[in-house]
Design a binder for these strands. Structure first.
Lengths: 239, 239
DNA sequence: CGTTTTTTTGAGAGCCATCAAGCATTGTGG
DNA sequence: CCACAATGCTTGATGGCTCTCAAAAAAACG
């Protein structure tokens, strides 16, 4: 599919590319791929690859020698995959498809030309990186200081809001493909306790999760419980 | 002190600015300040301020309604303070001086001109941001998955390496101003348990901390214990 | 030298991990 | 369409790590 026909980038959430920017992006575009759930998008240590995620969920993770794994981030449509790997020599993370995904492979080397050729887009990239940092700040803060159920609630709200921005929610529910083990690896919990935490949220009438569907039963109260507050992100970068 | 006389930026660890870049940075520079320990450098929510830290330690933190606090990051000489605040509308973090600090106030608005005027410097900024992200990835991973003593060891090693790059270490020891409560807030532990963790490290002959001095007694073994491995960072951005 | 702050140490409680077993769901081949 | 296996979810019991509270020791400060 051609870039200028892509529905995703039409969303107001994203920076609307000028003709010049769009032609630059088109020239970066290499190929479009589809992968099945659990497929590796980026192996740990692999470098120089860059993708835009157009459909589906993925996650960025880091493996430990003892076999455990930390999910650093979930990736949703519109997110860039592998920027760190494109810029730094040795990456220390991998990226896997969580659902079936459709990707757009990009020529990472052309990033170098961006500041000169597309200063506006460069500024927006910087802003998006600051947004990412802010989100990570929130993660760090609630990982260190909150109970399992609160962390759970926070993660659910954050994902819901991100999904909403790319039009993947209805009123108060959405498709939610992550399994227990993904949530466990993201929150630093055991799979068993993820379950207990979700049971807490359900019994308190805050949120339920079943059949790959997340329902926010009482968003206001869940926000209070989890210490979450939505942030207006402003426009975001997309390639 | 004039920028071109500054000793800190001469370190090979930092990108050596060209004449053009240096004159740009000079024109951004507003004033030089000195603050005492515990002084606020950036209040939570304050925006549009930008500093370079030239001497001393500071930390970036986020407060919770319940009074607890998470330290997101320690800031060392050469680090930029307030980039998020300069670019995004509402910041959700504050920055405080940990020791006496000396700062250089910069005109944040001039950042906008950087892509056009100094594309090389912009690329280096991007790389530094990716390095920061990689470091944060490590933090997230060990916060979620490691015991108190391991997290402690990891943090100590990371800080030691960062200090080394700016010449603030001797062989296997360094000045180490953070107090128990700072470490506690950084690691998501109670002050009491920080102490127990440090006692563990001391009793195992890995590291000791006393009188504001950190000594790495057996770096190799500490790295293994904490699951830390040093990363070659490459040159870093400085303003 | 007294006061305040920080560090150290102890006892008890709570949260969450681990282990293990039963249940539900999905997929497969007959 | 059903039997069966495989996978993931749920739930309980036990134990370990870390918190909280509290008080004493040490250090920093004026």
């Amino acid at each position: 599919m051609a870039c200028d026909l892509c529905q995703l980038r039409r969303r107001t959430f994203f920076h609307q590319l000028s003709d010049e920017e769009l032609s630059f992006v088109r020239s970066m575009k290499r190929e479009q791929t589809t992968l099945s759930p659990d497929a590796d998008i980026l192996h740990t240590g692999e470098t120089g690859k860059l993708f835009t995620l157009f459909a589906g969920w993925a996650y960025r993770y880091r493996d430990f020698p003892d076999g455990s794994r930390q999910i650093l981030d979930f990736l949703l449509p519109g997110d860039l995959i592998g920027l760190q790997a494109a810029i730094l020599p040795k990456t220390q993370y991998g990226v896997k498809a969580l659902t079936a995904v459709s990707l757009c492979a990009l020529d990472a080397d052309m990033l170098d030309q961006m500041p000169e050729r597309l200063p506006d887009l460069t500024r927006i990239l910087l802003r998006s990186l600051m947004q990412d940092q802010r989100r990570t700040d929130g993660q760090l803060a609630f990982l260190g200081r909150r109970t399992a159920a609160q962390r759970m609630g926070y993660l659910l709200l954050e994902l819901f809001d991100r999904l909403q921005r790319v039009g993947m929610t209805s009123d108060s529910w959405c498709q939610f493909p992550p399994q227990r083990r993904h949530l466990a690896d993201a929150l630093g919990l055991s799979g068993a306790h993820v379950n207990r935490s979700m049971a807490d949220l359900r019994d308190s009438g805050l949120a339920t999760l079943g059949n790959n569907v997340l329902v926010l039963l009482d968003r206001k109260r869940l926000e209070t419980f989890a210490g979450y507050s939505a942030v207006d992100e402003g426009n975001r970068f997309i390639l």
